[in-house]
Design a binder for these strands. Sequence first.
RNA 1: GGAUGGAUGGCUGAGUGGUCUAAAGCAACAGUCUUGAAAACUGUCGCCUGGGUAACUGGGCCGUGAGUUCGAAUCUCACUCCAUCCGCCA
Length: 424
Amino acid sequence: MLDIKFIRENKDLVSEGAKKKHIDFDVNALIEIDDKRRELLTMIENKRAEQNDVSQKIVNVSEPEEKKKMIENMQLLKTELQKEEEELKTVMLEWQKLMVSVPNIPDISVPEGLDDKDNREVKVFGEIPKFSFTPKNHIELMQNLDMLDLERGAKVSGFRGYFLKGDAVRLQFALWQFVQEHFFQKGDWKQMIVPSVVRREVFMGTGYLPQGEEDLYKTQDGDYLSGTAEVATMGYFMDEVLDIKDLPMKVLSFSPAYRREAGAHGKDTKGLIRVHEFYKFEQVVLCEASHAESVKFHEEIQRNTEELMEALKLPYHVVANCGGDLGLGQVKKYDIEAWLPSENTYRETGSASYFHDFQTRRLNIRYRDEEGKMRFVHSLNNTALSGRPLIMIIENYQQEDGSIKIPDVLQKYMGGQTVISKKS
RNA sequence: GGAUGGAUGGCUGAGUGGUCUAAAGCAACAGUCUUGAAAACUGUCGCCUGGGUAACUGGGCCGUGAGUUCGAAUCUCACUCCAUCCGCCA
């Protein structure tokens, strides 16, 4: 959500921002409604002032006739007041509906464009592997090594269901330990394992609702399953006032992630690229309300993820997402995409974005600045490691005989094992 | 599922229809004292919002929403959340 005062003062900026994101939003309609809201509010406040004033005087009037007359006048005033309040309520409903759909303004450095085809490559790391044989995809590799069971996954869990088995489990846990240790070594990251069942309020606050309802699983109690630990981590700080000494607040959160993939029925139907349920480490940062701080930490959390990929020696590139590929609240976003040999292309493994105070205004997360003024903190998040890098490791590290080398940095978490090969 | 209690500013917490314009304490900020710091003392100090260059000033906010009343933190109703106990499950 943006500040209505800011919207009024910068309506062209807001309008152009929406256009850049290819979101249809009529700023003038909002301002028109806001004019009406202000006009009503002034009328109501004047009547309330009179009511407060007279009510206080009534106490001291001893003359019964005079007192009676004053009360009668106040009854009349009250009727008018109630009528205007009713009117205001109607206006407010429309006002709120528009307010939650105002898109945040994309940064000037965000490329123009409609969808992910227009994203701009900003960094490339590593050599794309050249195989002296035809590389297999992760499904074949994993099934041959008894690391994956999709048939039983479908039997038990349904479409996109899967079981990870054997060395896949060991490799996956090695990855989690590696990530956890990497962030622990930085010293200034707090770690949490956070809930995935989260109340509606928090989804509203983080901007996943009201838009995006069909992408979420819902419980019969009206709660939702979150697709990222970002939601619960932000919710942790909801309605709280942070001490400026605790900023920046850096949190590495782990949780299961659930995604309905409602709009992606035909996409990536095989294997582990697109699944309904996976685990993920997420970085969340809350910082002081300055654009420069947001940019600084955006680069930092992006770099953190790159460090992980580099340590794992996975070829990747980074794209700056274009306007049309940004969410409602995002100011700027980088996607990190790792090389997937079987598709001969880069596939997304993580996404780093910052929001200014778009989320924290809704969630009411504040701090007191140097001057003692209450301000909304800025929020950012980035994937640290999702479920996908496991797939990239398996495909990039495959050898001609179908065995898979284990990345150097993971070997110590697997008892010194260097390769995954067929058990005799 | 049943029973009981609760929700007040950054925090703790008083407040049962009209000086509540929300006590008090803590924290914070400024000052005095001090070589410096602490302590002590003095003063300032809730949040949101309208108007005004400013001094200042209007309105709202005591979990949320309705209601009673000339007037509600306070009375009534509904809801949400939290805590404790019992039951159920593990």
